[in-house]
C-alpha cells in the first residue's frame, strides 16, 4: 500500500520572464515500510520537493497524497492536525527547541496530542533506549553532541508513529562516525520499527543505506535504482555510477 504518492508535481518560482522550475513534473510513490533516498546535485530541486511533501511549501500544480489524503487540498486550519498525526521530521540543523530538555523535546508532540502522562513516559523511555540516548534525556540540546541531537530529533519524529518520516540531509551537520551511527539508527527504525522514511541527501554514503534511490536533475526524475539483495558496498558503487552518468558535480563522485 502506498504511503506517499506524487502526481505530476510542479513548483515554479519567480515572475513572468524569469521562472525557475525547481520541481518540474515529478511523479513517484513510496510504499509502506520503504526507506527511500532522493539524490541530486545542489539546485536539482531536492529540498524544494521535500518542502512540498512536508507541507512547508505549496505546490504550483499537481497532487501529493499521504495515505488517502491529498495534502494540496487540506485547509490551513487542519494542516497542523494533519502534520501532527501523519508526518515526522528530521532536519539538517536538528530544529530542537533550546528551551526544552531532550526528554521534553521528544515528548512535545505527545503533549500536544494530550497523551496520558504515564503512557508518555513509557514511550519516551522506550524510544530513547532503542536510539541509545537514554542517558542524556535530562540534558538540554546545547549540552549534548551533534549525533545525540540528531538521534533526539529521530526519536521526536518516531514517537507519534507517523505514516511517513521526512529527513532533510540528516547527516549534513555530523562527523563521519556520528553519521554512520545515525544512518544505522535510521535503518533500524525502518527495519525493526516499521518506519517509512523519505530522505533527501547529496551524500552517496548516506544514500547507500536506503532500499531505493531516486535521482533528480533540473527538477525532474533522472533515474531510479533499487538495492534489492545487493550488499551495501555494491549499492554504493552503483549509486556512484549513476552520479557519474548524471554528470552533475564531480564532488558527488568519491
Amino acid at each position: 500500500m502506498s504511503v506517499l504518492k506524487l502526481e505530476n508535481v510542479k513548483k515554479y518560482y519567480g515572475v513572468k520572464n524569469n521562472i525557475t522550475k525547481a520541481v518540474d513534473g515529478i511523479s513517484f510513490q513510496v510504499d509502506e515500510g520503504e526507506f527511500v533516498a532522493i539524490m541530486g546535485a545542489s539546485g536539482s530541486g531536492k529540498t524544494t520537493l521535500l518542502n512540498c511533501i512536508s507541507t512547508i511549501d505549496n505546490v504550483t500544480s499537481g497532487h501529493i497524497y499521504v495515505g488517502r489524503e491529498d495534502i494540496t487540498e487540506i485547509k490551513e486550519d487542519d494542516m497542523a492536525d494533519f502534520r501532527r498525526e501523519n508526518l515526522g521530521f528530521i532536519f539538517q540543523d536538528f530544529n530542537l527547541l533550546d528551551t526544552l530538555s531532550i526528554e521534553e523535546n521528544i515528548s512535545l508532540s505527545l503533549i500536544i496530542n494530550h497523551t496520558d502522562v504515564n503512557e508518555m513516559d513509557k514511550r519516551v523511555l522506550d524510544i530513547a533506549s532503542k536510539l541509545g540516548i537514554s542517558d542524556v534525556l535530562k540534558k538540554f540540546p546545547y549540552e549534548v553532541s551533534g549525533g545525540q541531537k540528531q538521534r533526539c530529533a529521530c526519536a521526536r519524529a518516531l514517537i507519534t508513529h507517523p505514516k511517513l518520516i521526512l529527513a532533510d540531509e540528516p547527516t549534513g551537520a555530523l562527523d563521519s562516525k556520528s553519521s554512520r551511527m545515525l544512518l544505522e539508527t535510521m535503518r533500524d527504525m525502518n527495519e525493526h520499527l516499521g518506519a517509512t522514511i523519505l530522505m533527501v541527501t547529496h551524500d552517496t554514503f548516506s544514500a547507500s543505506f536506503c532500499k531505493r534511490v531516486l535521482f533528480l536533475k533540473d527538477g525532474k526524475i533522472f533515474n531510479e535504482i533499487l538495492r534489492g539483495d545487493k550488499s551495501r558496498k555494491e549499492f554504493f558503487d552503483e549509486i556512484i555510477d549513476v552520479l557519474t552518468l548524471l554528470g552533475g558535480d564531480t564532488e558527488n563522485v568519491r
Partner: peptide, 14 residues
C-alpha cells in the same frame, strides 16, 4: 521565527 516554525511542524495550531 524558527521556534514557531518548529511548533507548527510538530502540529501545534497557529
Amino acid at each position: 521565527s524558527l521556534e514557531f516554525g518548529t511548533y507548527l511542524l510538530l502540529g501545534i495550531k497557529k
